[in-house]
């Protein structure tokens, strides 16, 4: 995604903006950023979704030259940002229901088209519950019609707003309130769940990408790239949740990075249904490094035969991702 600049030896591009030319700096580092999701909202400490939403919407605002309307699904992001009479949004924003954000966005985009304001762009956003489960019908419809909407899923891998229940984005073995860590197969079972980015690609929409909070330059660049297309676009951002995943709040970025480095969350882009780029993993790590700090995966680390076998199954998922997207970096792209 990023042009072929090596920002630091680790290849994760977390270099400070002060060393860059102005045009190379992030949107967040600019005084002119719109601060779309401003301070004072009620997200938990260390909330990945709040961070992701601020970076994404600010980058989209910049790309749309300030002409952006935002549609939000029900969920944490909606609840913590707009407790009446307060709102943390400094952009025009509308929330309707849990399962209809893509359809509402279709309507907003249609209104702009008929009003002759085609330059006003539409961004719809929601968590993994509204995206992969309850709103999937509407999302698929929006994709299929190729409506001019960028849909962003902030994936924290469970229904966090209602108290951490399983969604179709919850990974195997993860303990949630509805997949408790007990019984024959503790946590969420293997062989279930949806891969939304691949499903989005199957709709042949112009642009699909995944992004991580650990690589915010890449995240911003993908938003900018997404905004350069018209039609339906999909961005899937992994956003760790301290409460739901069971880790200390200052580990949000570290876990975002480990999810990518172990191969469980591959970063890639696709255009018209074809993968066009994948971010190489330059410092690969075993899935254990990513899973062990999270309480929801505690059942993998009992040290018995059964949990060892399940941990190996998790590693196999990561290895399959690495093979599928050819993620292992060589000297050339990791220097």
């Amino acid at each position: 995604m990023m042009k072929n600049t090596s920002f630091n030896p680790k290849g994760n591009r977390t270099i400070g903006n002060r060393l860059q030319e102005a045009c190379e700096c992030t949107v967040q580092s600019s005084k002119d950023r719109c601060n779309s999701l401003t301070s004072g909202h009620r997200a938990c400490q260390g909330c990945g979704e709040a961070l992701g939403a601020r970076w994404v919407v600010d980058a989209a605002m910049k790309a749309a030259k300030g002409k952006l309307l935002v549609v939000n699904a029900t969920g944490c992001l909606e609840v913590f940002s707009t407790p009446y009479p307060e709102t943390a949004w400094q952009v025009p924003w509308v929330h309707s229901l849990f399962g209809n954000a893509p359809a509402v966005a279709t309507g907003v985009a249609a209104a702009m088209r008929v009003k002759g304001k085609g330059d006003v762009r539409v961004l719809a956003q929601g968590g993994d519950g509204s995206t992969t489960d309850i709103g999937f019908g509407c999302l698929s419809g929006m994709f299929e019609r190729n409506d001019d909407v960028l849909y962003v899923c902030y994936d924290n891998q469970a229904y966090m707003n209602t108290g951490v229940q399983r969604s179709s984005a919850t990974p195997p073995t993860a303990s949630t309130a509805t997949t408790p860590s007990m019984g024959h197969e503790p946590g969420n079972v293997f062989g279930t769940g949806k891969n939304l980015p691949l499903l989005a690609m199957a709709h042949q929409i112009p642009y699909v990408a995944t992004a991580s909070l650990s690589d915010t330059r890449d995240l911003e660049a993908k938003v900018e790239r997404a905004m350069s297309f018209s039609g339906a676009r999909y961005l899937h951002v992994l956003v760790p949740c301290p409460l739901g995943w069971g880790y200390v709040p200052n580990d949000t970025i570290r876990l975002s990075r480990l999810a990518v480095q172990c191969g469980l969350f591959p970063l890639f882009e696709a255009e018209d249904g074809e993968v066009t780029s994948a971010t190489k993993i330059c410092e690969p790590c075993p899935v254990e490094d990513y899973l062990k700090p999270q309480k929801r995966f505690a059942n993998l680390f009992k040290g018995d035969k059964k949990s060892d076998k399940r941990l190996a199954q998790m590693q196999a998922i990561a290895d399959a991702n690495i093979r599928r997207f050819d993620l292992l970096g060589d000297e050339e792209n990791c220097k």
């Binding site: 309307l69 549609v71 509308v94 309707s96 229901l97 399962g99 209809n100 359809a103 509402v104 966005a105 279709t106 309507g107 907003v108 985009a109 249609a110 209104a111 702009m112 088209r113 008929v114 009003k115 002759g116 019908g137 509407c138 698929s140 419809g141 299929e144 019609r145």
Partner: peptide, 28 residues
């Protein structure tokens, strides 16, 4: 004139699209 006719995937979407359009100032 100036009318967008949208074939949606369900009644839930039909009214939701109308909600979005109306919130954005269009007669739906």
């Amino acid at each position: 004139e100036n009318c967008d006719y949208i074939n949606v995937e369900s009644e839930f979407a039909a009214l939701s699209v109308a909600i979005g359009a109306s919130a954005a100032g269009a007669r739906a």
